[in-house]
Design a protein around this nucleic acid. Structure first.
Lengths: 243, 243
DNA sequence: AGACGTTTAAATGTCTGACAAATGAAAAAT
DNA sequence: ATTTTTCATTTGTCAGACATTTAAACGTCT
């Protein structure tokens, strides 16, 4: 953990980067205790406030956790898949909303990625995954459901599909793609007819997964992608000509 | 930006979350100036240090940027795809290294995702993307190249393939998958023969992309996935029986 | 010796006040 | 009208203090 090379950014950012490098490079292993704030102040020759700001930066990235008390301090945090999910979803959602990503682009990305893990899911999905999907399909078929709840259930359905691939790295990557699109989907008004259509496709997908028919799952997902894009386009059109 | 509900975490974390919510919900639009640190101190009834720690947390996530001077302050930052790339790559790399994700799993995820955008890339790749891939192939064929440089060039090749899909959301998602695996790939010793094989596949992939033959690209990527996994497995085996 | 309560030291969390540095705007001088 | 100077505002950094939490060290009693 040597002194960072001089830069134009603030001191706390430099110190944070210096420690971050030590963590990423494995120099500071998981659960290792960092020097106390006072010691870091000495090492980097800055005040304790500056050190604290640097540590807060790292904490915001879940790179460290802090504990109070006699044996407390800052410890290198084991980044869990769950931690990473959360960050991914927040970041993806902001990216989409702040950069005016159109529905088509987001939709295309989402289904392309989802189709990537369909064959794996067809092979490895467990009874649990199938049960989750069936349960969400049942909920989606209920008449009184709000559009928001319908979307949330849709996300849950697709997450089960993705998780069925049994690859946590894939699940992590897909979490952003699938969940971040939810706000965009929420702008769609799902008519009774479109819901029926989607539920039908979901059912067919679950059936195909149960039958381990990867080809059919892929084809059905392609259908769903086309249909969803079409729904999105109709919303965009109706906005262009509101009268 | 109302006061956060009481929680067990620190004050600065609560304040950061409060502001974060305001940003994510769109309550604070991009480029909006936050109240000055002194004003935030008053609003949240905490000291300026605490406010600063909260702001540093947000800065670490690229949610805000700060500027000094009379008209300075903290501004809501437009999260760019580039910002998101960086975070994704760091997070993914840490996830892999800290959770002992095996090479097979990471490899499977990477190629599954990459194959997802192959058909799009076959349709949309520009001359630029093809030129980048050809250039990297040329570099990969040079004899004196270190394993690290070979890997770096490999990453550049695949990034060009992914970027060829012309979907920034896909590129963002894939950046983590492709780049984060580089450290794992770096542990592989690429013999002259394996390099020749890989370069051959890369050339075939570039040819197929130029011919816009999506089916062939997919098949070749499958081959490359199999071959890479095989290389990784041989490294793992030789480690088990070092004598 | 062992169990139990007390003290104590170490560490983070928070507050206060101060000064430095940057920066744009207003005021002043030319 | 233009340039220069001054000035107020805001972030960046520092120093010191106190509160709070926590586990270890210590002492006491059985």
């Amino acid at each position: 953990m040597k002194n960072a090379p001089p830069s134009e950014t603030g001191l706390s950012a430099q110190i944070a980067q210096s420690i971050r490098d030590a963590i990423v490079s494995g120099d500071l292993p998981v659960d290792e205790r960092l020097p106390s704030e006072a010691e870091l102040s000495d090492q980097f020759a800055v005040s304790r406030s500056t050190v604290r700001e640097a540590l807060k930066r790292l904490a915001a990235q879940s790179l460290i956790r802090t504990q109070r008390g006699a044996t407390g301090g800052a410890f290198v945090n084991r980044l869990t898949f769950e931690d990473a999910y959360g960050q991914q979803i927040t970041t993806s959602a902001l990216l989409l909303s702040m950069n005016a990503v159109d529905f088509d682009t987001a939709c295309e990305a989402r289904f392309a990625l989802e189709r990537a893990c369909a064959p794996l899911s067809a092979t490895r999905r467990t009874a649990d995954h199938l049960a989750t999907m069936r349960a969400e399909i049942t909920r989606q078929a209920q008449p009184g459901l709000s559009d928001e709840s319908f979307c949330a259930s849709d996300v849950a359905f697709h997450r089960a599909l993705v998780d069925g691939a049994g690859n946590p790295v894939l699940s992590y990557q897909l979490a952003g793609a699938v969940e971040a699109i939810e706000p965009l989907m929420n702008m769609i008004t799902f008519t009774a007819r479109s819901r029926t259509h989607i539920v039908g496709l979901h059912t067919a997908i679950a059936d195909a997964l149960e039958a381990q028919d990867a080809t059919k799952v892929d084809a059905l997902l392609a259908d769903l992608a086309t249909y969803t894009a079409q729904l999105g386009r109709s919303v965009a059109d109706s906005k262009k000509t509101p009268a």
